[in-house]
């Protein structure tokens, strides 16, 4: 039996790069990503798990990184907004659709919104409007009234092949 610890050395892979760091047990994953790894693309906008701007994929599932401890992510594969674009720097289809449909205004909720979309389409490549809205319900946006975000995802859903 391993004894309880106040901090621990963990290894996580974030956007394809493996990191080994010592983290305090109390550190939230979002703070680990932003403050320890300096991956500031992942944002946070609340302290109760409502806004979704800290959303990342942990082992392929979208989660709010303010709603889990960094120490729980030991050995996990994490994808953040900074890992979405293609190697050559060009936008992935979801990012491109958000730009094409003016689904980005201030860009602050965008990282989380993209991760929720990525997950939604991985589960359901052709969602209905209702399914889209349920898919991004955990992501608050104050700029767009969600209209163009839903449109961007609808356009992606209308395509044959979405996730490359």
């Amino acid at each position: 039996m391993t004894e309880p610890v106040k901090s621990k050395r963990i290894t996580v892979t974030v956007d394809g790069t493996e990191y080994t760091r010592t983290v305090e047990a109390r550190t939230l994953l979002v703070r680990f990503i932003r403050e320890e790894l300096d991956h500031t693309g992942t944002h946070f906008g609340c302290d109760t798990g409502h806004c979704g701007s800290c959303s990342v994929l942990v082992d392929g599932k979208v989660v709010k990184s303010c709603m889990m401890l960094a120490i729980q992510a030991d050995q996990a594969q994490i994808t953040t907004v900074q890992g979405l674009a293609f190697q050559d720097g060009s936008l992935d289809p979801i990012q491109q659709a958000f730009s094409d449909h003016h689904a980005v205004q201030c860009g602050f909720c965008t990282p989380g919104m993209l991760m929720a979309t990525e997950y939604l389409l991985s589960q359901n490549p052709h969602p209905t409007e209702e399914e889209i809205r349920r898919g991004i319900k955990g992501n608050l946006c104050r700029c767009t009234g969600y209209v163009n975000i839903v449109r961007a995802i609808q356009a992606l859903g209308a395509q044959e092949e979405v996730i490359s």
Partner: peptide, 21 residues
């Protein structure tokens, strides 16, 4: 967002979890 200092243990089984509890 800033939690109090915590201890953390990750048991390998339900029995171990019960033992810690």
């Amino acid at each position: 967002m800033l939690l109090r200092e915590l201890e953390y243990v990750k048991p390998d089984s339900v029995d171990e979890a019960l033992e810690w509890l």
